[in-house]
Simulated assay, not measured.
Amino acid sequence: MLKMDGIAAFVAVVDAGSISGAGRALGLSKSVVSERLAELERLMDARLLNRTTRHLALTEDGESLLPRARRILGETEEAMAEAAARRGQLSGRLRISGPVSFGTLHLGPALHAFLREHPAIELSLELEDRFVDIAGEGFDAVVRHGPAGDGWLIATRLAPSRRLLVASPDYLARNGEPRSLAELGAHRAILYSNRAQDWSFRGPDGPVILRPRGAMRVNHGIMMRDAALAGLGITLLPSFIAHDAIRAGALRVLDVGARAEGADVYIIHRGEGGSAKLRALIRHLRHHFGVPPHWERDLPA
């Protein structure tokens, strides 16, 4: 019969890329991790990893076992967490991915309060703007803004957020203020490089995709905001990034007769209801952001 400590050692070695790294993650000596891994291979009568002095690589048997091993560990931990939740305490690991700008500005502060309330939860937050594979990469949930996608997953809206065309008063004084999509197309733009058709609008005659001249392309929303503040051009930003600069008058919202595609914030996860701790996190985030969320308050309609 396979032992949980052997399965945990195998997954930790794969994640860390080395036996010594797995030992540090598990709080065990390198020799103990190696013994547990060797015992697992003996019980399975299969080599799971090809080892050299510098490299570890999964064998075909290891590739087959890995997703099952992750699922076994996850379900065991979740069963323990559910039992703790029934006793009134949420505990266990929670691994979340989120976008860089939203994570820095809003998700991080919200999670601080959540962890103070539930100190037995061990949270791992990874910020990146690519669309991660929830199941394949071992995430419990992913926070996204814009279209949720992935129809086989559960998407829960955390908060609304518009995308707004903005520019600095200095840029507009030098270049004029566009009043239509046609005029907007003649201006210099600060573009989000991770989305090919980012300037998507819903006009009176239906959807319109604009391809303006790029003064700058960048894959980070806060840098886009800062470039607009520096007067480099017009940019299209989620309200959760632009709100403070708009309220301060450092950026102005432009009206070109069409509304940009929204950037509502969702949390995506597997399973109908999610785990007890994930459900608690979703409730906390929705309450923390508010209705309407604080980044939408006092902005132009």
Rank of each mutant, 00 (worst) to 15 (best):
F114V: 09
R144V: 14
I72K: 13
R54T: 14
A120I: 03
L181H: 02
L28Q: 10
L181G: 15
I190G: 09
A120C: 00
E77L: 13
M224P: 01
N50T: 14
F201A: 03
W295G: 05
L164C: 03
L2N: 10
R297M: 06
G290P: 04
L49V: 14
G262W: 02
L251W: 06
R163L: 04
R157D: 02
L251N: 04
R42D: 08
G21Q: 08
V11S: 07
I7M: 06
E77S: 14
R179P: 05
T59N: 06
R202A: 02
L115V: 07
G231E: 01
L299A: 07
P160H: 10
L37C: 11
L251M: 10
R270L: 13
R47T: 14
A182N: 12
E77K: 09
I268F: 02
D198V: 01
N219Q: 10
L236Y: 05
R283M: 08
H220K: 08
L165G: 08
L237E: 03
N194P: 01
I268G: 06
R297N: 07
R86I: 00
F201W: 07
F139Q: 07
S20M: 11
S180M: 05
W152R: 12
L299K: 07
A8R: 15
P292A: 09
A83I: 01
A120M: 09
L56C: 11
S124T: 15
A57C: 00
K3Y: 12
A258I: 04
P67A: 01
M224W: 03
S31Y: 04
I222R: 14
G149T: 02
S31Q: 15
G262F: 00
N194G: 13
E60S: 15
G221C: 01
G271L: 00
A258R: 12
R54P: 00
G74Y: 08
M1E: 14
L164E: 00
L165M: 12
H269M: 08
A57D: 13
L37D: 05
R225P: 00
G176H: 08
A141W: 06
W295H: 03
H220F: 11
S91V: 01
G274D: 03
A81T: 01
V208M: 08
R51H: 06
G88S: 14
R247P: 09
V14C: 12
G203I: 10
V208F: 09
S200Y: 09
W199K: 05
R174E: 12
E78D: 13
G138Y: 04
R70G: 10
A110S: 14
K30E: 14
E63F: 00
L66V: 14
E77C: 12
S64H: 13
V265Y: 05
A230V: 04
R87S: 15
S64L: 06
W295V: 04
L172W: 08
S200C: 06
Y171N: 02
L37E: 02
V14I: 15
A196C: 05
